[in-house]
């Protein structure tokens, strides 16, 4: 009886050890792909050091009029203090024949590691004149406004957000 129990226990242990070894190998094989799942980056987007946070509700409340304002937060997600962080806003039209893009710039002098700076832009979102050179189309629709926000540092850190406003 003892022998039977001994051999049954041994067989069960051998099975479990083998299964465990295979499971460990399977885990080791899949671990690297989890690490490689990083988000794609735009050119000039240097990684996680800088981030721009926008308020969607505020974006939705923008109107095609002069004297609009937009608050955004610039975050330093890195481990070192950043200085002279340039934040630019380019307001342009979906219609590429309109050459009246407007440029605005703010500078954050120092941004500590892990810190956030609030930046406010006051800008003109007035509806541009209707394009002269737009071809006749079956469904001619108004052009949308585009806000391109970019934060950069002299060291080359940068991040970008493009906002497309509904017509």
């Amino acid at each position: 009886m003892r022998d039977v129990v001994f051999w049954l226990s041994g067989a069960a242990l051998a099975f479990l050890v083998t299964a465990g070894a295979f499971l460990l190998l399977a885990n080791l094989a899949t671990a690297p792909s989890e690490k490689s799942l990083n988000p794609d980056r735009a050119p000039g987007d240097s990684g996680h050091t800088l981030d721009l946070q926008l308020d969607r509700e505020r974006l939705a409340s923008l109107e095609p009029l002069p004297d609009q304002s937009l608050d955004l937060a610039v975050e330093n997600e890195g481990g070192e203090q950043l200085s002279h962080v340039n934040v630019t806003l380019i307001v342009s039209s979906e219609n590429t024949t309109l050459s009246d893009s407007r440029y605005y710039r703010q500078t954050v002098e120092t941004l500590p590691a892990g810190g956030t700076a609030n930046v406010r832009f006051e800008f003109d979102l007035g509806a541009p004149e209707q394009p002269v050179a737009r071809p006749p189309a079956p469904t001619l629709e108004p052009s949308r406004e585009i806000l391109e926000l970019r934060a950069t540092t002299p060291e080359g850190n940068s991040t970008i957000r493009t906002v497309i406003l509904p017509p």
Partner: peptide, 26 residues
């Protein structure tokens, strides 16, 4: 036997690394 089974079960189900949140793709 019980300890071995527990160890194997734990090793098999655990992730090799701590799970990192993945940002949404651009």
């Amino acid at each position: 036997v019980v300890l071995s089974a527990t160890a194997v079960f734990t090793a098999g189900c655990a992730h090799a690394d701590e799970e990192v949140p993945i940002e949404p793709l651009v």
